[in-house]
Nucleic acid binder design. Structure first.
Length: 175
DNA sequence: GCAATGATTTACT
DNA sequence: GTAAATCATTGCC
């Protein structure tokens, strides 16, 4: 694993995510990601803030970090760095492939996509090399677009970070 | 133990 | 565009 979380976030776009829920295997192409690092203020583990919730982020890279946000929404992250270096890639959008209802809009958002693909808290700390959740490289070469964070029109220090990556002209990317 | 907060979503002006 | 909903987690008393 590379220790550059931004490079990994970019690399993950276009890869295929598989989730095995018992008999049903769901899959989708990763359409939008965002990098999070302990150096970034927005990260839960900012400045090595080690809490019970963020403990997964401090684990070895290659694990799933599922976090319940606002009491309602499950957010799915992939831990990327070494132990004790909390960095992760947030999966923000997914293009449905197999096993997912092909309704429009159900995966266009970090909270909604997890519900669509069936990711729950149970998948927290799941090893991505196991048989529950894993990533496959299907050789797709998407047109990746770098972008700033949403809602930051006024140029700030953090606003200039192009840490969001998405597939160009993909309908599943969140607004 | 209790008040404040948030990697969002949805609805409303 | 802005605001409110909603609840587990966090931080402070």
């Amino acid at each position: 694993m590379n220790d550059d979380v931004v490079a990994i976030a970019k690399d993950l776009v276009g890869k295929v995510l598989f989730v095995n829920n018992g008999d049903l295997i769901k899959s989708g192409v990763i359409a939008e990601t965002e990098a999070y690092s302990y150096k970034e203020r927005a990260c839960h583990a900012y400045n090595f803030r080690h809490t019970n919730r963020t403990s997964t982020l401090f684990e070895e890279g290659g694990k799933a970090y599922v976090y319940l946000c606002y009491g309602i929404h499950h957010l799915f992250n992939i831990v990327t760095n070494k132990k004790d270096y909390p960095e992760a890639v947030l999966i923000r959008a997914l293009e449905p492939q197999n096993g997912i209802e092909n309704k429009s809009g159900i995966t266009s958002g970090p909270g909604k996509l997890t519900r669509s693909i069936g990711i729950v808290m149970q998948h927290n700390q799941t090893d991505l090399t196991g048989d529950q959740i894993w990533i496959e490289d299907q050789g797709l070469i998407p047109h990746i677009v770098e972008s700033k964070r949403i809602g930051v029109d006024y140029a700030g220090e953090d606003a200039d970070l192009l840490w969001r990556f998405s597939i160009k002209n993909n309908r599943w990317v969140s607004k």
